[in-house]
């Protein structure tokens, strides 16, 4: 999704996220204050929705991003970590080829790395190579942006 970034000399920075119906405009002031405006397509001027302090904005950002609740079962999820990396959630249930494989024996991972497995109510980190992938697991995978590994190709992520 393209995000337009514009410098506002003496004020701060402006970010515009747009879809077919609207533009959401976020202004980050040098003081830390955030303003969120929305402009519906076809309308001339935007409308201010709300203002947040720096702390409130971080908190809201974390909520929107899904830090507290990820509706994982609903659909495919990925999070952009930085320019070059994304985190993906892969459900083994929808990619049965993975079931029963050991983490260390998966081939052609390339630069992709399985960083954790979400199983039941817990998350396994620091994976051992002989950790076996189970049917209801959700794999949390780190991969380079734009370079889909075979693992993800297979699972049509």
């Amino acid at each position: 999704m393209p995000v337009e970034k514009i410098n506002l000399p003496g004020v701060g920075k402006k970010f515009i996220v747009e879809d077919d119906e609207k533009e959401v405009i976020v202004i980050i002031h040098n003081t830390g204050k955030r303003e969120v405006h929305m402009k519906k397509k076809g309308e001339e001027h935007s409308e201010e929705l709300f203002e947040l302090s720096d702390t409130q904005a971080r908190e809201l950002g974390a909520i929107l991003e899904g830090s507290y609740f990820q509706p994982i079962a609903e659909e495919h999820i990925e999070t952009k970590l930085d320019q070059d990396h994304i985190l993906e959630w892969i459900e083994v249930e929808e990619c049965s080829e993975l079931e029963g494989e050991k983490v260390g024996e998966l081939e052609d991972l390339g630069e992709t790395e399985i960083v954790a497995i979400h199983r039941g109510d817990s998350t396994i980190v620091n994976l051992e190579p002989d950790e076996q992938i189970e049917k209801d697991d959700i794999l949390i995978v780190l991969e380079p942006e734009g370079k889909h590994s075979d693992l993800c190709e297979k699972c049509q992520v």
Binding site: L8, G10, V11, K14, I27, K39, H45, S46
Partner: peptide, 12 residues
């Protein structure tokens, strides 16, 4: 609230 709109570009 003009700051959010395009007119702020040329003004600033």
């Amino acid at each position: 609230g003009w700051i959010a709109d395009e007119e702020s570009g040329p003004i600033l």
